[in-house]
Write a protein that binds this DNA or RNA. Structure first.
Lengths: 198, 198
DNA sequence: CTAGTGATGACATGCCGTGTCATCGGGCGT
DNA sequence: ACGCCCGATGACACGGCATGTCATCACTAG
């Protein structure tokens, strides 16, 4: 009845488009204003002009909103690893892949990533989810190496090391506010790891 | 009133002792019987002869029951690192520490750890919590190295690598059912990592 | 004997996340 | 143009999770 009227007033379509984007924007706003824990899903949905139920149709849970942007990273990893020439050495593959990911997925998003990092730091639940995303990445790398014929232990070891390189490098990149490129930091961190294990 | 009678019959104290242990045992039983997700906190509490509220006084949430046994591991790491001689090289410290942890905290618990691993695999939420526990361990190692004067990047890198060694080694140890000792596997995994980064 | 302490029970509450059905607009075929 | 299906959303119900609060009771100290 009421919605009837509203819909007719809109006179374009039944739903405003971009529900997912609106939800995401509303969530980020509220998280910034009140913090993550103090923000409820009904609040987010209301600000986006939608219902709670619709929120959960777009995001599996409240935490997921923060990581939606990087959802396709595992698939990207899989693609990169599948397309690499068979002759590529594992560590060389990692270095190349990290460079590509740094340029296409991180460089230029520094401010947003910094903001997200602060939010993640503020909440245990978000920290858990962040770790899970890293694990998903590691799993993609591991499967990529398995598909290339490496044995299970080697694949796992390389995958974990790869993710260590990423996370340590990104932390460094976000902490130090000089204009250094992420890919350069990755190279440096890898050198330091090599020195440690020499 | 009812409890009155029961208490007087017990004639020892108002509460049966070991509430925490009973809750943990009840939870493990139910998880094994029905799986983690299908088990509710009221169920666990009822089987332990306690109330839901009391469950949450002993465990922060339902997942935590599974990891209560390893709660003191970060403190143990801190202690080990603080007591090590100042002359110890970082990687040597890690190797020694891993050996100690393997012998005192893992060797002999293989069956239980295997069971827990299967449970953790069965539930996303448990996987997240498991990752958080690993992260807590890494954090302890990192702080230990910071306290020893290492710079932030090096400490983080060593800590992450340390946890990678632990988790890959334990996975290997639990997967292969030969009688190999965990500490031996750790040595082998470290050798393989060194070879990878040579 | 009394006051304090600490673990527990009892109750209320709010949010999370899901299942289910109804609704409505757009696309598709005829 | 008509009618049908599909997909996104709303509306509602529901159970579980987690927490705050107060009362209760045994034990302990003085």
């Amino acid at each position: 009845m009421t919605r009837h009227v509203i819909t007719r007033l809109a006179a374009v379509s039944r739903w405003e488009p971009g529900a997912r984007e609106r939800l995401q924007a509303a969530a980020l706003d509220l998280f910034a204003e009140q913090g993550f824990a103090a923000t409820t899903v009904p609040e987010i949905a209301a600000r986006a002009g939608l219902t709670t139920r619709t929120f959960f149709r777009h995001f599996a849970d409240k935490r997921e909103v923060l990581f939606a942007d990087d959802a396709e990273m595992p698939a990207m990893v899989a693609k990169l690893m599948a397309e690499a020439p068979d002759t590529a050495e594992p560590m060389e593959l990692i270095v190349q892949g990290l460079r590509t990911m740094a340029e296409t997925r991180f460089e230029g998003r520094r401010a947003a990533l910094c903001h997200r990092r602060d939010l993640v730091r503020s909440d245990e639940g978000l920290r858990e989810r962040d770790l899970r995303k890293r694990a998903a990445l590691a799993e993609a790398v591991r499967e990529g190496f398995l598909a290339r014929g490496l044995d299970a232990t080697r694949a796992a070891l390389l995958a974990e090391t790869c993710v260590t390189l990423v996370s340590v490098s990104i932390a460094e990149w976000l902490d130090r506010d000089d204009g250094r490129r992420l890919s350069g930091i990755v190279d440096e961190v890898l050198d330091r790891l090599r020195a440690e294990l020499a």
